[in-house]
Every structure is written in structure tokens, then in C-alpha cells.
Simulated scan of single mutants.
Amino acid sequence: MPAFKIPESVLVIIHTDDLQVLLIERADRPGYWQSVTGSLDAADEPLPATAARELFEETGIVADGERVVLRDWRLSNIYTIYPVWRHRYAPGVTENTEHVFSVEVPRDSVITLSPREHLNHVWLPYLEAADKCFSSSNAEAILQLPQQIR
């Protein structure tokens, strides 16, 4: 693992076929709800591999390519890193590039949170999920979900 986080990450929106979205609550910031997110472990780590790894690490869901398939939206957002987390990055790094993925799962999927990272999870209709996210890029991606999965 690098000394500093790589300022390139994935956002994975987990949803059901009827647009219920899974949100997870951050352990380091209770009350901050989000989709699965995570930075590349190495500069050459393929984005789909990062998305699959983070999906498993944060929820226990395995993207097996058959029953659970990651969808690469081929959409990237550049955002300013929140000051509270900027110390995790090299000095002078203020922006992160986030690549958006989604995955459709059955509503009864077992969610196994990483207690070090997340406290709780909730399924919400996509509009409510977008409203509950603290991250504007996460909320905007959730709002695009109906168009992306058509």
C-alpha cells in the first residue's frame, strides 16, 4: 500500500432491479452515508479490479461476472477532496478522479460490512438515497441510475 492514497478512486452504486439503492454509513464520520468507494491500491490497478475489490471489502458482495456483474459507466468525476481527509494524500493533492460503476443485486443479498469502515447499511428508493448521500458526486450518480441501467 502506498504511503499516501492515490487520488483516483471508484464509486460503486449497488442497486436492485426496482431501483432500491444500498447506502453505507461511514465509521469515521457517523451520519455520513455513501455508496461503496475506494482508491486504487496501485497506479496500475485496473479500475474494474478496484471496483470489485472495494465492493467485496465493504459489503461482502462478490462481483462474479455472472450473477453479479459490475457495469462500468465510463463516467468520471473530478472533485475537491474534503479537507478532513486531505491528510491521506500527498502534500498539495487537492482533487480526486472518481470512476463510476454500478452493480445490480437481489434485494435479499447478504451485506457484510467492514466494521473498521462502516457502521450500518440501508436500502432506499434511489431518490431518497441520493438525498441521504453526503457526497454530491455520489448523489448525482444515483440520480443517473435509471438512465444508466436502461
Rank of each mutant, 00 (worst) to 15 (best):
A52H: 11
A27P: 05
A43N: 08
E45S: 15
V68P: 13
P146M: 03
R74A: 10
V93D: 05
S9Q: 14
Y79W: 14
V93K: 10
D18Y: 09
T80W: 00
A130D: 03
P106R: 06
Q144E: 13
D131T: 04
L145N: 02
P83E: 04
E58A: 04
L119Q: 12
V122N: 01
W33K: 02
F56Q: 14
A90T: 09
S135N: 12
E140N: 12
C133D: 01
Y32V: 01
P7L: 03
E54G: 11
L119E: 01
F4P: 05
V93C: 06
R86I: 15
S76R: 12
L11S: 08
G38D: 02
A3Q: 08
H15L: 10
P106Q: 09
D41F: 08
I14A: 10
A129D: 04
V10Y: 14
V103P: 14
D44L: 11
I24L: 06
E117H: 11
W85C: 03
L113M: 07
L55K: 05
T50D: 07
A139R: 03
W33E: 01
E104I: 09
V12P: 02
V103A: 08
T80G: 06
R29Q: 13
S135C: 10
H15F: 10
E57W: 06
P125T: 02
I111D: 01
F4E: 00
E58I: 07
L70C: 04
T94V: 05
S39K: 04
Q20W: 01
M1L: 07
V36W: 09
K132S: 09
V103R: 05
C133K: 08
T50S: 15
L70K: 08
